[in-house]
Computed example of a mutant assay.
Amino acid sequence: MDISALLLFIPACFALNMAPGPNNLLSVSNATRYGFKRSSLAGFGRLLAFAIMIALASAGLAAVLQTSAMLFQGLKIIGAAYLIYLAIQLWRAEPDASAQAGDVQVSMLRLAWQEFLVAAGNPKAILIFSAFLPQFVDVSRPVAGQFMVLGAMFLCLEVIAICAYAGMGVHLQRWFAEPRGKRLFNRGCAVLLTGAASMLLVARRS
């Protein structure tokens, strides 16, 4: 892997990291309800899921997902169902209650687990790793090491995306300070999560 490949990889990869998606939307929503720090730390659940996917793609196991229609369909349904569950929770959330008792009722582990499940429930993610990262690998050199370096860089850039979307959520929290505004924002996020679930259900293997 040479410098020119890295110079192409970093901006292309960061564009993928910053693209609006279920996990980034979840970071925004969590930041408005629990603050920047908790939302950012919860993102490590997403990083764990992505690290596992990168390892699977590196081992060539993504080919199994690529060829197994039943496995791909099953992951899609599970992922979409969980997104819809989160959407229902947001739609029904009472802004006053979440503001007063959110820190007590929702543990950091639970928030991180949500991030993990949303990331792991998207079978397209591992296919992205298996199709995107190899484009920047020099096949004339040892492949495994290059793949892991690219994967590590992806995860570092993902940390920036997590913090950026959490910061966005904090600013939005100021705009929706009143209970009515918070309720509208929560329900807007619920609609977007439902839309993401619908897109996941109609997604096809590339």
Results as ranks from 00 to 15, higher is better:
I77V: 12
I77S: 00
I77M: 10
I77F: 08
I77K: 02
I78L: 14
I78R: 03
I78N: 07
G79F: 08
A80K: 04
A80L: 09
A80W: 07
A80F: 07
A81Q: 08
Y82V: 01
L83Y: 08
L83M: 15
L83H: 06
L83N: 04
I84F: 10
I84Y: 02
Y85A: 13
Y85T: 11
Y85N: 10
Y85I: 05
Y85S: 09
L86A: 11
L86G: 07
L86I: 14
A87G: 08
A87C: 07
A87Y: 00
I88L: 12
I88N: 05
I88K: 11
Q89K: 14
Q89W: 01
Q89C: 11
L90G: 02
L90W: 04
W91S: 12
R92F: 08
A93N: 05
A93F: 01
A93S: 12
A93D: 04
A93H: 04
E94H: 09
E94L: 06
E94R: 11
E94M: 02
E94C: 09
P95I: 09
P95F: 09
D96I: 10
A97Y: 10
A97V: 06
S98T: 15
S98K: 14
A99P: 01
A99F: 12
A99N: 12
Q100K: 13
Q100T: 07
A101D: 15
A101W: 14
A101R: 14
A101F: 14
G102C: 05
D103G: 08
D103M: 09
D103L: 05
D103S: 10
V104G: 03
V104T: 11
V104I: 12
Q105E: 11
Q105D: 14
Q105H: 13
V106P: 01
V106Q: 13
V106A: 14
V106S: 12
V106R: 09
V106W: 14
V106K: 13
S107K: 13
S107Y: 10
M108E: 11
M108N: 13
L109S: 12
L109I: 11
L109Y: 10
L109P: 06
R110S: 13
R110V: 09
R110K: 15
R110W: 10
L111N: 00
L111C: 05
L111Y: 07
L111P: 00
L111E: 03
W113K: 11
Q114S: 13
Q114N: 14
E115A: 15
E115D: 15
E115H: 15
E115N: 15
E115P: 04
F116E: 07
F116I: 08
F116V: 01
F116N: 07
L117Y: 01
V118Y: 00
V118T: 07
V118D: 07
V118L: 08
A119P: 05
A119E: 00
A119K: 03
A120K: 01
A120Y: 06
A120M: 12
A120Q: 04
G121P: 03
N122V: 05
N122I: 03
N122Y: 02
P123L: 06
P123D: 04
P123A: 08
K124P: 02
K124Y: 01
K124R: 10
K124V: 08
K124C: 07
K124N: 11
A125H: 04
A125D: 04
I126E: 06
I126R: 03
I126S: 03
I126A: 04
I126W: 03
L127H: 01
L127Y: 05
I128W: 09
I128T: 06
F129L: 00
F129P: 03
F129T: 02
S130A: 15
A131C: 02
F132K: 02
F132P: 00
F132Y: 02
F132S: 00
